[in-house]
């Protein structure tokens, strides 16, 4: 069932289109990541959904109800802000109880709920502290507790983990995902980190220059990118003509094999002559860079590169045409 419908949203700043006819349906309980280069409109989209901005055109529907004209406080969703936006003049407990209080709960009841939410993020012991006296990771959890305490249907998270160090980040990824599954809340999660998006999401929405390029499950985004932009933005890509000439398709580096000149290809495979331009071996995988005429290709395989594979050598690059995915499909 569709929880959130983003319907043909357009938003310009001084003539510059930050969002360009964005349409996206998000189902109840889904974990969606918004991915894209800096300035592509991720934050703008989130702020439009949250109600901090009004779109020039288009509608936002939550549970079928048009909320486009509602102020943020009347929309059934909550946000985890990038820099957490914890109220510095309130304790952790007061921060978390703020939402329930505004929903009309008495202080005692609101605080009980807040304690519960803090427990859920593992901070029950710190409820009397001042947010300023906490580490980045702890502040992050407080922000999370504050956003889920009212059990919104939809949680918006704008790069919530970007201020954390790598290790903490990995741990929070797991915890966030568990929390999402446990509460059944729909997450829209903005990130710069494609591995993060790949690991956590049910679907990834890739944006570029205000447009939604593609929204699909992680493996579909990777295996079957619809545009050249998506193919290049997610992982690495070789572009090869689908059959000899004509429109191009995407071939992922691990699907390209480097074979000695003259060696027979597996049946049905295509091959093309190439020259090795460079070889690297990083973290258990070898990358072989090739030039096939004007085309630059990358082949990736596990383990050490084959013996004698040095720059300047002439080889053949082979692949199964079934792995060559046509763009635009």
């Amino acid at each position: 069932m569709t929880l959130l419908a983003i319907d043909d949203i357009t938003k310009s700043f001084a003539g510059h289109k930050a969002l360009d006819h964005v349409t996206l349906d998000i189902r109840q309980g889904e974990f969606i990541s918004l991915l894209g280069p800096s300035g592509c409109g991720k934050t703008t989209l989130l702020r439009t959904v949250a109600g901090f901005m009004t779109a020039d055109k288009g509608r936002i529907l939550i549970d079928g109800e048009d909320v486009s004209r509602l102020p943020p406080e009347r929309r059934p969703l909550n946000t985890v802000f990038q820099n957490y936006a914890l109220f510095p003049h309130m304790t952790v407990l007061e921060n978390v109880a703020y939402g329930p209080r505004r929903a009309g709960l008495a202080r005692a009841e609101a605080e009980r709920r807040a304690e519960e939410a803090l427990e859920m993020v593992g901070l029950a012991a710190m409820s009397r502290r001042n947010p300023a006296a906490m580490s980045g990771g702890q502040q992050q959890r407080v922000a999370l507790a504050r956003a889920i305490v009212n059990r919104p249907k939809l949680l918006l998270l704008d790069e919530p983990l970007s201020a954390l160090d790598l290790q903490l980040r990995k741990r929070m990824q797991i915890e966030l995902k568990q929390l999402q599954v446990q509460l059944g809340i729909t997450f829209i999660f903005v990130t710069h980190d494609q591995d993060e998006a790949m690991a956590m999401s049910d679907r990834i929405a890739v944006m570029s220059a205000g447009r939604l390029e593609q929204c699909d499950a992680p493996e579909a985004i990777y295996r079957r990118p619809r545009t050249r932009f998506v193919a290049e933005f997610i992982g690495e890509a070789n572009f090869l003509p689908l059959d000899g000439a004509g429109p191009e398709g995407v071939l992922r580096p691990e699907d390209l094999r480097v074979l000695p000149e003259g060696e027979a290809l597996p049946p049905g495979w295509r091959g093309l002559p190439a020259r090795v331009t460079g070889v690297t071996y990083v973290g258990g995988t070898s990358n072989i860079y090739l030039a096939a005429g004007p085309r630059e290709l990358l082949a990736r395989s596990y383990g050490l590169p084959p013996a004698g594979m040095t720059a300047g050598r002439t080889v053949q690059a082979g692949f199964d045409p079934a792995n060559l995915h046509p763009l635009g499909a």
Partner: peptide
């Protein structure tokens, strides 16, 4: 801007202007 983010957080949590 930080202050503004706090005001937005408050609206987001259900407080009127």
């Amino acid at each position: 801007p930080g202050q503004r983010a706090l005001e937005e957080a408050s609206r987001d949590l259900g407080a009127s202007g």
